[in-house]
Amino acid sequence: MIDWSLLALDPPGWGGVLLQGLFATLQIAIGGYLLGAVIGIFGALGKLYGGPVTRDLMEVYTTIVRAVPELILILILYYAGTDLLNQLLGLVGWGPVDISGLAAGIFVIGVVQGAYSTEVIRGAIKAIPPGQLEAARAFGFSPATVLRRITIPAMLPYAIPGLANLWLIATKDTALLAVVGFSELTLVTRQAAGTTKSYMLFFLAAGALYLAVTLISNAVIGMVERRSRRGFARPG
Rank of each mutant, 00 (worst) to 15 (best):
M155S: 02
S142R: 14
G140D: 05
R149Y: 14
P96C: 06
V92P: 01
A135R: 01
E134G: 12
V120Y: 07
I150C: 00
G90W: 03
W167G: 07
D98W: 06
T171C: 03
L89P: 09
L166S: 13
R55L: 09
G43Q: 11
V92R: 13
I106E: 10
T174D: 11
L48R: 07
R66I: 00
G114C: 03
L168H: 04
A104M: 06
L156M: 07
V97P: 09
P161N: 02
T145C: 13
D83F: 15
I64M: 12
W167P: 11
A144F: 15
N86M: 00
G105T: 06
I160E: 05
G46A: 05
I160R: 00
L84M: 03
L133C: 11
L166C: 07
V92S: 11
D56Y: 15
W167D: 02
A115S: 10
F139M: 15
G95I: 01
A136D: 07
L91R: 13
P129Q: 04
V68N: 02
L85N: 03
Q87M: 14
L163G: 08
I125N: 01
L156D: 07
P129N: 09
T54E: 11
E119G: 12
S100D: 05
T174A: 04
L163K: 04
A80Y: 12
G43M: 12
L45C: 00
L85T: 09
A135P: 08
A159K: 02
A127F: 06
D56H: 15
I152G: 04
D173N: 14
R55T: 00
L168E: 05
G90N: 11
A164C: 12
I109Q: 04
T171H: 05
T118E: 01
V68A: 00
A136N: 10
K126G: 11
Y79C: 11
Y61C: 06
I160K: 04
V38I: 13
N165G: 13
G162A: 02
A144T: 10
Y78V: 11
E134S: 09
P96M: 05
P157M: 03
P143S: 03
F107V: 14
L84H: 07
L176N: 01
V68K: 11
G140Q: 02
Y116P: 15
L45K: 10
P161H: 04
L176F: 11
T63S: 08
G105E: 04
I99T: 13
L102N: 13
Y116T: 09
K47I: 04
P157L: 00
G101H: 06
A104K: 14
M155Y: 13
A144G: 11
L168A: 10
L156A: 10
Y79P: 15
I152E: 07
V111Y: 09
E119A: 08
I74F: 15
G131V: 05
I106S: 03
R122Q: 02
V112G: 14
A164F: 04
G101V: 02
L163T: 09
G46V: 03
I106D: 05
A159D: 03
L88P: 01
L73S: 07
N86I: 03
G51I: 09
T151L: 12
L147G: 00
V120Q: 03
P157S: 02
I76N: 10
A80I: 14
M58L: 12
I152W: 08
L176C: 08
F141C: 07
